[in-house]
Design a protein around this nucleic acid. Sequence first.
DNA 1: TATGGTGTATTATATGTCATAGTACACTAA
DNA 2: TTAGTGTACTATGACATATAATACACCATA
Lengths: 129, 129
Amino acid sequence: MIPFSIDLKPGSPFCDQLAYAVKKAIVSGQLQTGDRLPSVRVLAQELKINPNTVQKAISRLTAEGLLEIQPGIGCSIANRPRKAEAKACAVLLHQEMERLVVEARRLNLSKEEVEKALTEHWNRISGQN
Amino acid sequence: MIPFSIDLKPGSPFCDQLAYAVKKAIVSGQLQTGDRLPSVRVLAQELKINPNTVQKAISRLTAEGLLEIQPGIGCSIANRPRKAEAKACAVLLHQEMERLVVEARRLNLSKEEVEKALTEHWNRISGQN
DNA sequence: TATGGTGTATTATATGTCATAGTACACTAA
DNA sequence: TTAGTGTACTATGACATATAATACACCATA
């Protein structure tokens, strides 16, 4: 069994969906520091996709510092990122936030409605910690 | 001159960037209901991209109900969407919100920091209304 | 030591998206 | 009629994506 939930759907690249599913599982506490991830070949078999596609997602998460590789052993969940890295990445968050605000205002939503949605998702994602 | 601000950069599709720039200009009040948009050919020339690429962005915004087309005349900014359409689109907003929350928690940001960022962007985008 | 399981790299192929180029058509204002 | 609208269509090249099939270095275990 795969230690996180994922349901691959066409529309966006499989490697993106896989990387996001793992990241979400880590952030929500479903996967914890030190936990082992199934091997590239096992994941590929379970998800019925190509091993290369899995490897692409893994290498991306490794580059982000979310996964740690032990050559010949496998890969496991790394520690939470240091503040230094986080600061550099926060720029991306602001881009996402602007996109979200633009979309919300296009839908004539109030700021309160958006804040409520933020709280809902925040609690849901953080609930398992 | 183009009645909205845009700076095309490689990395994401031009038609996406153009559609977003127009949407942002509408939402922020830079473009108002009834305002005329430059023609497909003019936009293509100014932005130094292909008319087909511009047309792709326009047709997407038209499908979203943000632009109105008068055949033979040109296209202009439409009225704000009705609640009915908005409700159907709100699902997408929740997907974006979840992605944002996941990213924020991956960066070890606090909920207060994210709420602060939301307020900042909200005021900036809404400032011109 | 030999075997099998790790991650990783490489090459090749097929498919789809994106941007471009060129052409053509229906429509409308002047 | 003429020129300017949006729109549709085909074709091409560049690029990303997913797949397939190997091959290699590494490590644990029998």
